[in-house]
Amino acid sequence: MHVVICIKQVPDTKNVRIDPKTNTLVRQGVESITNPFDLYAIEAALQLKDSTGAKTTVITMGPPQAEEALRQALSLGVDDAVLLSDRSFAGADTWATSRTLAEAVRKLEPVDLIVCGKQAIDGDTAQVGPEMATLLNLPCITYVRKLDLENGNESMRIERATDTGYEVLRVKLPAVLTVIREIGEPRIPGLRHKIRSKKQEIPVWGAADLGLEPEEVGLQGSFTQVVKVFSPPPRGERRLLSGSVEEMAKELVRILKSNNVPGF
């Protein structure tokens, strides 16, 4: 059994600002982290590794420093990593990204399962998993909260979260899954894996290695372009009251009254 995990390095959104003048992300001084949802994808794959001895490979498309995210995955116990990096990959939308990842998966075949996080916290599109499945002509199940192998690893029983509860599905492998938090808390690195993760060779594949033409990847291969990024206008006034509990309660009632809030 071979499981491929697709991860992404993202800016730590806890610290991200948008420059109000240029409407672009201020990336300076912002740390990069592994997309938090992708840590659940790694955990899902490692659970399969623990239970069935599955081989696990992690891939990411990104600039050279995205290698850090791959090394983190290795420190958690993932066996192998491949970095998809090429100048021509820059500016890719979800489609061009999926295209690139799909070619990498083909190159890694045989592959029985592809696991992604439910979405990346920078773009929040949740499109790459399903698009990749489309390109690979594989079934895709999103928002997976539980998975169990069945029928001698031929298929999987899946629990998929919905707004009101969950669905139970059965899917033949190979398939693409996107997973959510309920899959299990990401583990803490193991010492042996951490030591290995510092030294392990990580191959870098560019467009040529994947047999892709420049017009199929990056900005050129994208159907969409980001025209504008902006922060939503601030939502009204906020006031922090101070003083003793009694004083604050009095002040709150006064404000509510003066705003003609019903009941006050």
Partner: peptide, 13 residues
Amino acid sequence: EEQQMIKEIAAQI
């Protein structure tokens, strides 16, 4: 470097 890793892992736990 390895001792540092031991410390980091234990601290994270």
